[in-house]
Amino acid sequence: MSADTSAPLLDVDGLDVFYGRGARRKQVIHSATFSVAPGEVVGLIGETGSGKSTIARTIVGLVPAAAGRVSVGGRDLTGLSSSAWRGFRRSGTVQYVFQDPLRSLDPDLTLHDSVAEPLLITGGRNRTQVTERVLAQFARVNLDESLLRRLPGQVSGGQRQRAAIARALITEPRLLIVDEPVSALDSANRVQVLELLRELAGGDVALLFISHDLGSVAGITDRVIVLYRGRVVEAGPTSDVINHPVHPYTQLLVGSAPTLTRAGADREWRDSLRAQLGAAV
């Protein structure tokens, strides 16, 4: 893993995000600051409503930032005009993989056409070149070529998620945002997709892995960022955060993750942390 922290690939600095307007305007992200180095795998962890998907959506320009800065590869994205945004999206520098590929892939497109689509949008290639690239992506995610003509509904959940990843990879992104990509999969598929993501990262592709469960992504992340009620409450190398969590919420998160080795332990610890967090509200 390249740890070139001097030049982060993704730099989020003092990000504020609001939802709603007028009297109903509510701040959901409070000066979030973090970065992702090229090739790094970073987990963005938080409970439902903590703002993790909002941050991801702000990075790709789907949600406007009220204050602060988001830059990718040194380019400030927060001030882009809508046409500049379109150009940036078409470049495919940042790609987003959603939790449920059954809903994110077009049900009427074959896997080949779904994976090819981002290239067709970018333009400038003929049919043969596009198909060549699609085949290369299929190989990269360990999908058999026999599935090229299948529809998303005709393959397994794991195969579908790998097709969604192939679609994201075809533009050679530098940052891949994956939002709970294995939550909907069963064990065997989960292991395969996690392994694939681990292999992909490093070199040219960095990974921002969004999850509510530290326990399920600990093994593939270099660093984790913990988000609680719209604020970054902790960030650091994965093993440090797990072994020495500082914020009560991070401690609760670690103490709540079901593990095989500490089964049933930590009960009283959890109760006291809940009391602390409850008192803080």
């Binding site: 989960r190 292991v191 326990g215 399920s216 600990a218 072994n243 593990t259 080795t261």
Partner: peptide
């Protein structure tokens, strides 16, 4: 073993 391996490889268990 597969179910257990998943926790050992990707979960918190490896850090304990």
């Amino acid at each position: 073993r597969l179910l257990i391996d998943e926790h050992h490889r990707f979960g918190l268990d490896r850090f304990l």
